Simulated assay, not measured.
Amino acid sequence: MQQSRDVQANAEFDRRATSLEGTDEAVLEELFAIRRTIDNMDAALVNILAERFRATQRVGVLKAEHQLPPGDPDREAAQIQRLRSLAEAAQLDPEFAEKFLNFIISEVIQHHKIIAENHER
């Protein structure tokens, strides 16, 4: 099922889309080759995020079943510090990494709130 969705998404995606008409063909070919790598990484990121959210959904259900709060500030702070360290080691801007994780955490907490509300019914 996942593979057929991947094939369909790639079939609808024009890997050679560009607004850089008139650019040297050799430059465009190099650009398209680099962009293929980026496209592959974007696809991997989406799949990793989907798997992460499936796991956090399970956490949300467990929290709802045991009346635990949707957020865990100590865990979140530890995760942010861990991600900042990983970012530094990977030569990625730690500020960006922290903003990205904060966005994910806020989405997860919203999902946990919804799960808790639905569990109460």
Rank of each mutant, 00 (worst) to 15 (best):
H111K: 10
A43M: 11
L20I: 03
A90G: 10
D42W: 12
A44F: 11
V7W: 12
E107Q: 14
Q57D: 06
L31H: 07
L28Y: 07
G71Y: 01
L101M: 14
M1D: 07
A11M: 10
Q79G: 06
V108Y: 08
E95Q: 08
H66F: 11
Q57R: 00
Q110G: 15
H119K: 03
F100W: 10
R54S: 03
R121W: 08
Q91G: 02
L92I: 13
F100P: 02
I105P: 05
A89P: 00
D24G: 02
R35Q: 13
N118I: 04
I38S: 14
D14P: 09
L101C: 10
A50H: 09
A90Y: 03
L62Y: 09
I80P: 15
E51T: 09
I34F: 15
I105W: 07
S106A: 14
S4G: 02
F100K: 10
R58Q: 06
I38R: 10
A89W: 01
T56Q: 12
Q81N: 06
A77S: 12
K99V: 02
M1H: 06
I109Y: 09
E107L: 13
A50D: 13
L28G: 06
Q2I: 11
M1F: 05
M41I: 15
V61C: 05
R75Q: 05
D6A: 11
A78R: 14
E88R: 05
A9G: 02
N40E: 15
A33I: 05
A87K: 00
L31R: 05
L92G: 01
F100I: 13
F103I: 04
N102I: 05
A43W: 08
A33G: 11
N47M: 07
K99E: 10
I104K: 10
K63Q: 04
V108D: 15
R82P: 03
H112T: 03
T56W: 12
E51C: 09
E25P: 04
S106V: 05
E30R: 07
D39Q: 11
Q110M: 13
F96R: 09
I104V: 15
I34A: 15
A33T: 15
I105A: 12
Q81L: 11
L101S: 07
E30N: 01
S85V: 09
A77L: 10
N10M: 08
N40W: 11
M1T: 05
S4Y: 13
A97N: 04
E120S: 13
R52H: 14
R15D: 14
A116E: 12
D42R: 05
I109L: 08
I80G: 08
S4I: 03
S85G: 13
K113A: 09
K113I: 03
L83S: 09
P69I: 00
V46I: 13
R84F: 04
T23D: 02
D72W: 04
A87I: 01
T23K: 04
E51S: 13
Q91A: 11
E88C: 04
D39E: 14
A9F: 04
K63G: 00
E51K: 06
A77F: 00
E95G: 05
R15E: 15
D93I: 03
I34M: 15
R36K: 09
H66K: 10
N102F: 04
L45D: 08
